[in-house]
């Protein structure tokens, strides 16, 4: 569906994308993560055909992303939306139908995105969230085979975000391939079949969520009871650290570790207050790969 080889993109002397290979398969949801400036948007805009690669190749549906043949099958939601302020949502969609050369049920789509009451209001009088919903309507217009979304939920209220997620799941179930960039790790964990984390213009890691999490241990933490020292614990696991009386252990076998820990506590007659077990999350992977987590909700 999408095949990228040795992609490099430069702005003057600054190289935003420094040689990436990437394959997106038909029907999958592919998420590009990374901190600001990691090269996500530049990569996406090159896949969309808005930007020419400095070197390397990009094939979408086997062709040039700028070609009409590709555009006819592709929808996109840009990071910043562009509208004519003087047009209404319904006029904007009708214009879009002609420019994108796809057909859809305008009123049904407007209704689905909760814009029915704002259908005939000028775009410059819509709220930011309403504009983003109109943006989404244009991206999914006519159910394209391939959909690009650049930070689609940035700044959205939770309801609109849920609406977008539902719509994406529905499109994906219908066979649409989705490529999105996001700052929200939860979004990538929830929606994506495969995830790539970019760092300084390169793809640092790529895989399914399970594959990305595999090298990272689970964490068990609890308050160290009075009496025993951390070294008295029965676990043959690494003691990751203790903050005050809080103990955190990391383990690849959290179930076994929990059984041992609880049996030990029972035998000692102590309570393990605040006992929590947490599997590795994308947040752990992200911190390890991309440095400190970006603003957003960790998974």
């Amino acid at each position: 569906m999408i095949e990228v080889r040795g992609l490099r993109c430069s702005y003057g002397t600054f190289e935003a994308v420094s040689g990436i290979d990437l394959d997106v398969r038909r029907g999958e949801v592919y998420a590009l993560l990374g901190t600001n400036g990691a090269g996500k948007t530049t990569t996406l805009e090159t896949l969309e055909g808005h930007r020419r690669p400095t070197s390397g190749s990009v094939r979408v549906f086997g062709g040039d992303p700028r070609s009409t043949a590709v555009r006819l099958r592709t929808g996109m939601m840009l990071q910043e939306s562009g509208f004519a302020a003087e047009l209404t949502p319904i006029e904007t969609l009708r214009l879009w139908s002609r420019v994108a050369r796809r057909e859809d049920d305008d009123d049904a789509l407007i209704d689905r995105l909760g814009l029915t009451r704002r259908r005939d209001v000028r775009v410059d009088r819509l709220s930011g969230g309403e504009r983003r919903r109109l943006d989404l309507a244009m991206a999914v217009y006519g159910r394209p085979e391939l959909l690009f979304l650049d930070e689609p939920t940035a700044g959205l209220d939770p309801q609109t975000r849920d609406l977008l997620w539902d719509l994406l799941r529905e499109l994906s179930a219908g066979g649409t391939t989705v490529v999105l960039t996001t700052h929200y790790l939860e979004e990538a964990s929830t929606l994506a079949d495969r995830i790539a984390i970019m760092r300084e213009g390169r793809i640092a890691v790529e895989g399914t969520l399970a594959e990305l999490l595999a090298p990272y241990p689970a964490r068990i933490s609890f308050d160290l009871p009075d009496g025993p020292a951390a070294t008295d614990l029965p676990l043959a696991v690494d003691v990751a650290g203790s903050r005050g009386d809080r103990v955190t252990v990391t383990t690849d076998e959290p179930e076994r570790a929990m059984v041992m820990l609880l049996a030990w506590a029972d035998g000692q007659g102590v309570r393990l207050r605040g006992l929590v077990t947490r599997p590795a999350t994308l947040d752990d992977v992200f911190r390890a790969v991309a440095g400190p987590a970006p603003t957003g909700v960790a998974a």
């Binding site: 969309e48 808005h50 009409t68 555009r71 006819l72 996109m76 840009l78 910043e80 939306s81 562009g82 509208f83 004519a84 302020a85 879009w96 002609r98 420019v99 994108a100 050369r101 796809r102 244009m138």
Partner: peptide
């Protein structure tokens, strides 16, 4: 239209640049 990113939007459709 360029400042409003409307040109970019129109260009992301299937129509050739000249037509837009």
């Amino acid at each position: 239209r360029r400042k409003d990113l409307f040109l970019k939007r129109l260009r992301s459709g299937a129509d050739p640049d000249a037509s837009v």
